[in-house]
Design a protein around this nucleic acid. Structure first.
Lengths: 189, 189, 189, 189
DNA sequence: AATGAATGAGTCTTCATTCAT
DNA sequence: TATGAATGAAGACTCATTCAT
């Protein structure tokens, strides 16, 4: 039941936004009563926090696995980009809620999430730095800004990419790694 | 007064989100009454639509100016990226509302905005295509996906970039054009 | 309207108690809507505080008048007892709410009321002390405890006295002053 | 368990009032679940009735003992006052609930309690009447009103008397009997 | 151009109670 | 003897909107 409430909520939060989705909407969509909702969640915000934690914890865990693989920086980065793009397909709604609704967490809760986000970010930064040292990447890059650029490319996909369309998430990920590695400029310039 | 209402609303919508900001909040922040609000706007949504239209129309107009300049594709693209990044400084709140709150427009209104967004997008796509033909850009790029990638880099900046920090918006724009043109890979590879 | 809301609320709070009276009950009894209630009161507690303040402020003011009259202590005390007993007739419901529902005020609000109550109490204590010094009252009385005893006699009347019954409030006040002054013991003992 | 539920409930009812105390509050304070509560009590009101009955039955029983002692009226009255004041120390919370929350009993239940209260009251009235006849007390007293005055003095103590303070309940009872017997007036007047 | 009073539907949340286990 | 899941009604409070003035 808790699982089902969460799943339905994610769908509704994605479609109408957190504040515009009422607890009534959620329980109606499952044919249960509001009491049931409050049996499982102490508040609407608790549910939102659950959704956030679930995603970021899982993501960080998967990122750690990549890091532990000890592959080249380029490969590590590729794998992370693949993870992010594939998540659109497997849990797009969840991630969109994660991107859009953090504002509705309390100060306390949102700072917990922010810290975890920062850790995710810092890990990518570390990969960039290492890549520069190992001469995999250009040495005139600002690791922090570059990380933001890469995350911009991937995260923005959540706003438009439809994995059931012409282009598969695998293809998109590979296109994007090409873009990230080589830019759009004609070679030699 | 209408101007002031709009300005305050943008601040509040940015901070708390559209649905979580009440008309009461808006008028309280200006020391007027709700009647005043409804004298200038027929509904809360009208105000949101105003905010959207104002930004996208202005943006499209500026984009047109760039296009009419007849410079090289690379320069045109650079100018558009500069516009987008500079907007963070000059009207960040407005743009953040524009990015986040479109969902709260009615079907009808939101399709108006979507069309204008699409036009903005298509124009960039056109620049990319032309750049490929003119051999300014690589010929194995998918213009549509590449446009999304570029917009990802710039638009995502609204989520984190602080123009009053160490890096100026000018510097960021130049860093990002470098990234977009050359990627992160070591040259020659 | 605010006046009417207050008056009705007092009646309902007396009959059913503060927590068992819903805002719905209040507005229903006047044929208006909940919005109206919240237009005039920021919360149910604010209304309760209003009721408390109104009574205690008025009572203290009337007590001050008695004090300023410079009559004998016995007469001053008599007048205060008369005030308290007469209030049962003129604003019994109000006072019963005042006696019973203070618990439902916030810490902050209830301490405001408590302080005013204490002042009322201390003024009576002062009259007793002065009466002892002026040899109007026995000198082996504890002024504080005696004040509580006197207030017990009068305030408890709110639990049972029906001013529309056989005994008028004037008669009751005089009976009680007799009791307070002479007790029940046979004279000379 | 039933005993413990009752004890905890009394504490909570005293502190927050009957309606503002939820069954959840009660069971939480004991670390059990709501099911447990409903195993022992058929409703929240049943519990309140239990609390009322328990106190009034015990009080009436103790009053009867005093009556059966066949002492002088003055001594009987003294003993009853002592009982009431001592109860503040030994079961203050219980009595405060008894005084304040009768309103939340159903018509039927509350009339049962009211009858027992009346009996307690009538017994004191009888002692007063007998005291007048036996020339222990003044003959110009109204027995009913006098009983209310005496009960006012004692019952009001529940609103303020702290048995752990400077004055013991024994001392208070003796002070109050002095007040009841002799009033505050200087002797001889 | 702006206000103040009012509405009615809707918000999140709590509650007493039930019942299968 | 006690639990855990669920209900449905009611709780306080908010909100976008209207309208006479």
């Amino acid at each position: 039941m808790k699982e089902e409430l969460t799943r339905q909520s994610i769908q509704l939060f994605e479609r109408k936004g957190f504040s515009s989705t009422s607890v009534q909407d959620i329980v109606d969509s499952l044919g249960v009563t509001k009491g049931t909702f409050y049996y499982y969640f102490t508040s609407k915000e608790t549910l939102l926090m659950d959704i956030h934690l679930r995603y970021i914890d899982d993501l960080v865990a998967r990122q750690k696995k990549v890091l532990d693989s000890n592959e080249s920086c380029r490969n590590q980065l590729t794998k992370i980009v693949e993870i992010l793009i594939k998540d659109i397909q497997t849990q797009g709604s969840n991630v969109r809620v994660y991107f859009r609704e953090m504002r509705h967490l309390s100060e306390e809760n949102s700072s917990v999430i922010k810290n975890k986000r920062r850790m995710f970010h810092l890990t990518i930064e570390k990969i960039i730095k290492e890549g520069i040292e190992k001469k995999e990447f250009r040495d005139n890059l600002d690791p922090k800004m570059t990380t933001f650029a890469i995350l911009g490319v991937t995260n923005w996909s959540y706003e438009w990419f439809d994995p059931s369309g012409n282009i598969s998430s695998k293809e998109l990920a590979s296109m994007y790694m090409d873009f990230i590695l080589h830019g759009i400029d004609l070679k030699g310039e």
